[in-house]
C-alpha cells in the first residue's frame, strides 16, 4: 500500500482486466459492459450486497484485483438470472459472477468463512464421494461448520423440523452410517478428473485437486 503512484499505475494499466479475460469463465465479456446499471437495479440482492455486477465490472476495469476477488458479492448471487435477461449488452452476468467466484476460490483470495462458499465446498465434497448427496451428513457438516457448540445449538433449534422429516420418511438416520451411491463411482471420479484436466489445460493451470487451497 506504500507506493501510491505504483498502485495507481497498476490500477489503470488494465492488467487485471486482461487477467479476467483470460482466466475467468466468460471474462471476455467484462469489457462490453456499458455501465448502464440495469443489472444493479434488477438484482434480487440489490441493496444488500457490497458490489453490484455493474460495480464489479467497473472495478475490474479499474484494476482493483484484491477487492474484486475478495468480494462477498459473487458468492451471494442466487443465480436468479434477472440481470442476465435484462442486460442490454447481453452480458452473461450470472456466469461471470460464478466464474469470478470460482477463480477467486482457486487463487485462495475468496473471503474466509463465507457461508455460501463453505456450503458449496461441503456440497461438492459430499456428492462427489459417492455420486449422490447424503443429506444427513451434509446437514450435520453444515451445522457444525463453526464448531461443536454452535452445531448443537442449531440442531436444538431445528429439532422439530428434524422430527417432522423423520416421520414423513424424508430423513433416514441410518444414512449416517451407510451412504448409498451411484453405480459407477470410479467412472464418476474419472470423469471429474478429466474435466479438471481439460479446464486446467484451457486456462493454463497446473492440475491441482479441488478444495481449500489456502
Amino acid at each position: 500500500m506504500g507506493d501510491l503512484n505504483q498502485q495507481m499505475l497498476d490500477k489503470y494499466r488494465n492488467n487485471f482486466l486482461r487477467e479476467v479475460e483470460e482466466k475467468v469463465d466468460d471474462g471476455g465479456w467484462v469489457k462490453m459492459c456499458m455501465q448502464c446499471g440495469v443489472c444493479a437495479g434488477s438484482c434480487t440482492f440489490g441493496p444488500d450486497w457490497e458490489h453490484t455486477p455493474q460495480k464489479i465490472f467497473m472495478m475490474i476495469r479499474a484494476g482493483k484485483r484484491e477487492e474484486v476477488l475478495g468480494s462477498h458479492s459473487m458468492w451471494l448471487c442466487t443465480s436468479c438470472y434477472n440481470c442476465m435477461v435484462r442486460c442490454p449488452r447481453e452480458l452473461p452476468i450470472t456466469h461471470i459472477m460464478h466464474g469470478l467466484a470460482s477463480y477467486a476460490h482457486r487463487l485462495g483470495l475468496a473471503p474466509k468463512n463465507q457461508p455460501t462458499r463453505d456450503f458449496s465446498l461441503i456440497f461438492w465434497e459430499n456428492c462427489t464421494k459417492t455420486g449422490r448427496v447424503n443429506e444427513l451428513r451434509m446437514t450435520i457438516s453444515v451445522y457444525f461448520r463453526e464448531g461443536f457448540m454452535s452445531g448443537v445449538k442449531k440442531m436444538w433449534t431445528l429439532r422439530n423440523i428434524g422430527r417432522g422429516l423423520f416421520f414423513a420418511k424424508r430423513l433416514n438416520p441410518l444414512e449416517l452410517f451407510v451412504s448409498h451411491g451411484c453405480k459407477d463411482k470410479d467412472g464418476l471420479r474419472r470423469a471429474l478428473k478429466k474435466a479438471d484436466e481439460i479446464e486446467a489445460r484451457r486456462r493454463g493451470y497446473a492440475v491441482q485437486p479441488r478444495g481449500y487451497s489456502s
Binding site: L9, K11, Y12, Q54, M58, M59, A62
Partner: peptide
Amino acid sequence: RDLILDEDAAIAA
C-alpha cells in the same frame, strides 16, 4: 473522479 466507484483516481503517465 470515478463516478461509478465514487472515488478520486488518477492516470499517472
